[in-house]
Design a protein around this nucleic acid. Structure first.
Lengths: 198, 198
DNA sequence: GGACTAAACGGACCGCAGTCCGGTTATATT
DNA sequence: AATATAACCGGACTGCGGTCCGTTTAGTCC
């Protein structure tokens, strides 16, 4: 949301940096106590001893804050997918990488649950968020490498990714008692059929 | 949400019925003018000359209101799927019915756009709404009839349905200029591979 | 050190969905 | 027609995410 376009962006002012630290600390504290639901912007501001406007200038929105909180683990996950060891990382057969990707993604979503959910509630995007676009391209690439010939691999990749929608996964787990293992198996079944099916 | 359990439910009181008509009329009017976004519960109440509490007692929530507004077209669609002519209705081969189901569902979602979106924003459900459950069972049945042998047809049906998520479809159409035709083709590709792929 | 300026600050304010409860009214009963 | 009662009604109220704008302050230049 914030432009931040010029390369030589002036360093952040010291009070701004201090407040960001305070806010992130307070945010993790609130979430630690009462889950993501306990993190309202008003309470966060008060808890961090900061004005509400400051919270929004720093993070743009509640979803932006959640994204920031998830940044580290998300980056770690991305690194594992892009550069880590097979079968998740490069080196394995495309289908195996696809299977591993879904399985790990499911584990990730189940682990960070509410945070991921809240991060997706950005007003406009949810699909154009950088991470989502990355997963789309990743799956598309794996499909192509796997000899997938179809008019629109990009749409197919989007369909497969829709299957991993956090809201859906969490709903299945929480309301229907489906285990992560079963979800992974279903994903494996799905992508295997898609890649192999003529 | 409302119990309404006893079979011999007393008829609705006349003033309640009158207000419901007023509200539905006003709702369609507001949507007609400014789209679904223009339909806020306050404005609706004012426009219908009714208190806000009345709106919520009638429809439970904004999503509930949207569901009511969609009720007719949704029922018509359900009837076509369950009892209508093939290939959407019974009589055609399962795979053909599956393909037709996706195609028609896409047409439906694109036609009613914002309404469907708003109807899904129920606080808790979105997946357990009766209609969604019906589509899940429907797809599961078609998979089974199509000779789909897999440990969990129900999860597979859910995955396929996730592909038709209105938010996703509308996003692709509105932000990426994807046509309904391409979406249908992609769906056909997907279900064909899933059913055929061993 | 003093003056200047752009950035950061804070909290009042907005519109929203949804809740609550004291007052009102339609309907059944006699 | 009078009474009783359960359903209905309205709108003040809450908590939320998000915006706005007058005020303060950190960093810079003389």
């Amino acid at each position: 949301m914030r432009p931040e376009m010029t390369p030589a962006t002036a360093a952040e002012r010291s009070d701004a940096a201090r407040n960001r630290e305070r806010l992130l600390l307070a945010a993790r504290e609130l979430i630690g106590q009462g889950g993501a639901a306990a993190l309202t912007m008003d309470r966060l501001a008060e808890h961090a001893g900061v004005g509400k406007g400051t919270v929004f200038r720093r993070f743009g929105s509640r979803a932006g804050l959640m994204l920031t909180l998830l940044n580290d683990s998300e980056a770690a996950f991305q690194a594992r997918v892009l550069f880590g060891p097979p079968p998740l990382g490069p080196g394995a057969a495309p289908l195996d990488r696809l299977v591993a990707f879904g399985a790990e993604r499911i584990v990730y979503v189940l682990e960070y649950g509410d945070l991921v959910l809240a991060a997706e509630h950005a007003s406009r995007n949810r699909f154009d968020v950088p991470a989502a676009a990355l997963w789309n391209r990743h799956v598309e690439m794996l499909l192509r490498e796997g000899g997938f010939d179809s008019p629109e691999p990009w749409l197919m990749a989007g369909s497969l990714n829709a299957t991993l929608d956090p809201e859906r996964l969490l709903h299945l787990v929480r309301e229907h008692g489906v285990t992560g293992r079963r979800l992974s198996a279903s994903w494996r079944d799905l992508v295997t059929r898609v890649v192999r099916g003529a």
